[in-house]
Amino acid sequence: MNRQVQQVIKAQPSMDGAGVAIQRVAGFEQRGMDPVLMIDELRSEHREDFAAGFPPHPHRGMQTLTYMKHGGIIHEDSQGNRGEIRSGGAQYMSAGRGIIHSEMPTQDSMGLHGFQLWFNLPAAQKMDAPRYRDLPGDELTEAQGEGARFIAVSGNWQLNGMSPIEGPLRELAPQAALGDLTVEAGVEVTLETGAGESVMAYIYDGSLEHEGTRFPERQMLLFGEGRELRIGAGAEGAGLLLLRGQPIGERVVHYGPFVMNSEAEIEQAIRDYQSGSFAA
């Protein structure tokens, strides 16, 4: 059975960091997105839109995944990690019990196109030690089909006409998967999906056709239950992020950069940060 579109969420123009222009899709209490919490798309040819970057700021209780299609980003954090990725690379960070990090564009980035995604952590892992990993573009796995190209960052994927592939990032929890699909005009792609999975697609270029309806770029499509997802590209082709994951199903309490399960845990995170013991 083909999964049907259950909800469409339009990305909203916003600003974050030190004035970086973004398009944001937030779903902290959106059941169909669990375990995905948020997607930010950063896209501009004008350096003034992103040059100030994201100076040092804290996180607790969630994971971030930054995927760059064009331009470069430098990550530094309170654990002593430093990483730089260029076009096609990704950076993974699990904040766990607490980390302070910054993400700044490289000096030679005259244009930038990338995404930062937030994924939830189960309650049992929210106070684990922080983790960080760089994934250069040549470490990501790729599959080609007739009129389609797929890059897997995380998870196992089976798309029609392509060999099964697995992304190199296995730390993303719980069983969350991210891939970048580019489809030529009029081409249809079928994705095999598991029972109970949340399945969604963020359209960053062109448009998708699904069950006779056209969906333009900068929209997130949330799909209902089914064993497969059949989608086709519109007349201009399509570029989209595909996301899957097993829902955590726990209460989400969100305050700025902290994502916990209760108000008391949020208050404790704020106290820990203010006292200087946050990232100890």
Score class of each variant (00 low, 15 high):
residue 221 L to R: 08
residue 275 S to R: 10
residue 226 G to K: 00
residue 197 E to N: 11
residue 255 Y to L: 11
residue 179 G to E: 04
residue 219 Q to K: 15
residue 169 L to V: 03
residue 173 A to F: 03
residue 210 H to V: 05
residue 203 I to Y: 02
residue 205 D to N: 03
residue 151 I to R: 12
residue 164 P to N: 08
residue 277 S to I: 10
residue 277 S to W: 01
residue 140 L to A: 09
residue 173 A to R: 04
residue 217 E to L: 10
residue 140 L to H: 08
residue 185 A to S: 10
residue 190 T to A: 15
residue 246 Q to M: 13
residue 155 G to D: 00
residue 221 L to M: 04
residue 247 P to N: 00
residue 148 A to S: 15
residue 240 L to T: 14
residue 196 G to E: 10
residue 251 R to N: 04
residue 155 G to V: 12
residue 261 N to D: 01
residue 229 L to W: 09
residue 252 V to N: 00
residue 214 R to P: 03
residue 234 G to E: 04
residue 264 A to H: 08
residue 206 G to E: 11
residue 215 F to T: 04
residue 168 P to N: 02
residue 152 A to I: 09
residue 242 L to N: 01
residue 184 E to C: 01
residue 249 G to M: 04
residue 251 R to W: 02
residue 198 S to H: 10
residue 172 L to M: 12
residue 259 V to K: 08
residue 148 A to V: 14
residue 245 G to Q: 06
residue 239 G to V: 11
residue 279 A to R: 03
residue 187 V to H: 11
residue 174 P to S: 02
residue 143 A to V: 04
residue 154 S to F: 12
residue 253 V to L: 04
residue 161 G to F: 07
residue 197 E to T: 03
residue 275 S to L: 08
residue 170 R to A: 11
residue 187 V to P: 07
residue 207 S to H: 05
residue 240 L to Q: 14
residue 220 M to W: 07
residue 163 S to M: 00
residue 262 S to F: 08
residue 162 M to Q: 05
residue 243 L to M: 14
